[in-house]
């Protein structure tokens, strides 16, 4: 039962992603061609809203649902992994027209062929795990 709140948060997120067409192949192509403001508007406002939330939580030391202080985990401090990994990810995003969240929404939406993209994303994840130590980070 403790998990149901995450299920509900996911459901709301999925509906919003689908209804704003952020899961659409066309919207992603328009974004990378600077043909529409839509996706920039969504991500931009989402960041402002998220930043406001994080700021309020930090400022007022707001605790979570069970009364524990909220923990923030800083990401790894290196640069290479973000440059290389980020560029690889961005290319995959434009080629398939979906990032991990929208892939899942698309499958739920009935575009079952998106499951192929998802499957090969898991293959990519697996290969990364396999050769991680040989890559510059």
């Amino acid at each position: 039962m403790k998990l149901i709140k995450f299920l509900i948060t996911g459901i709301v997120f999925g509906i919003v992603m689908a209804k704003s067409e952020a899961i659409s192949w066309y919207r992603i192509q328009e974004m990378f061609r600077f043909q529409a403001f839509h996706m920039y508007g969504i991500i931009g406002v989402a960041v402002v809203m998220g930043a406001l939330g994080v700021w309020l939580i930090k400022k007022y030391h707001i605790r979570d649902y069970s009364g524990n202080p909220i923990a923030f985990y800083p990401k790894d401090k290196s640069v290479i992994r973000y440059l290389v990994g980020g560029t690889i990810f961005g290319m995959g995003w434009a080629l398939s027209g979906a990032c991990p969240g929208p892939m899942v929404v698309n499958i739920g939406y009935g575009y079952f062929a998106m499951a192929i993209v998802f499957f090969f994303a898991i293959v990519g994840t697996y290969l990364y795990g396999l050769i991680k130590d040989k890559l510059p980070h």
Binding site: I43, K75, D76, R81, Y82, V84, G85, G86, T87, I88, F89, G90, M91, G92, W93, A94, L95, S96, G97, A98, C99, P100, G101, M103, A113, I116, V117, F118, F119, F120, A121, I122, V123, G124, T125, Y126, L127, Y128, G129, K132, L135
Partner: peptide, 21 residues
């Protein structure tokens, strides 16, 4: 687009330690 694209997403996102979200 769908096979290689998907692969790049999975590999790149782990390499970069995160995706769009």
């Amino acid at each position: 687009m769908i096979v290689f694209g998907g692969f790049l997403i999975g590999f790149g996102t782990r390499y970069a330690g995160g995706c769009t979200s």
